[in-house]
């Protein structure tokens, strides 16, 4: 079982992300969080194998979430993908600088996202 946490405030985008990632296979279990706060609440409940997050959200932004995940020993090994409309180099640098593993720009290509997710899920030597 591979658990993926999707953090995205737009319901439509969230369901698109979910349906894209569900196609990875039946062993994937997806949890959806509609805000950064919700994500913070989800994190301790399950051991996630991948977190996919938006940047622009109303409570805490995706960068802050990435920073939190990376600074917390318990979660620091979870692969992180940012999927954002923020196309600017600056945000990409920031996201990757904070420790995100990939940065996709919306509109994302479903196959690319799946490929990135697959690679990260299968990455050898993930600390778990």
């Amino acid at each position: 079982m591979q658990r993926i946490l999707i953090v995205e405030d737009s319901a439509t985008m969230r369901s698109l992300l979910a349906s894209t990632l569900e196609d990875l296979g039946s062993s994937v279990k997806i949890t959806e969080a509609s805000s950064g706060f919700e994500a913070l609440r989800c994190l301790p409940r399950e051991e996630y194998d991948l977190v996919v997050t938006d940047i622009n959200m109303p409570d805490i932004n995706g960068l802050e979430l990435v920073s939190f995940v990376r600074s917390n020993e318990k979660y620091s090994a979870i692969p992180l993908v940012i999927v954002s409309t923020e196309g600017s180099e600056r945000d990409r640098e920031k996201g990757l600088g904070l420790g995100a593993d990939a940065y996709l720009v919306k509109p994302f290509d479903p196959e690319t996202l799946r490929q990135v997710a697959r690679d990260l899920l299968e990455r050898p030597g993930r600390g778990r």
Partner: peptide
């Protein structure tokens, strides 16, 4: 301006 979460002193239970 910004709300940054970080692990608390007891990262298991606090934020």
């Amino acid at each position: 301006v910004s709300t940054l979460p970080s692990p608390g002193d007891a990262p298991e239970s606090q934020i």
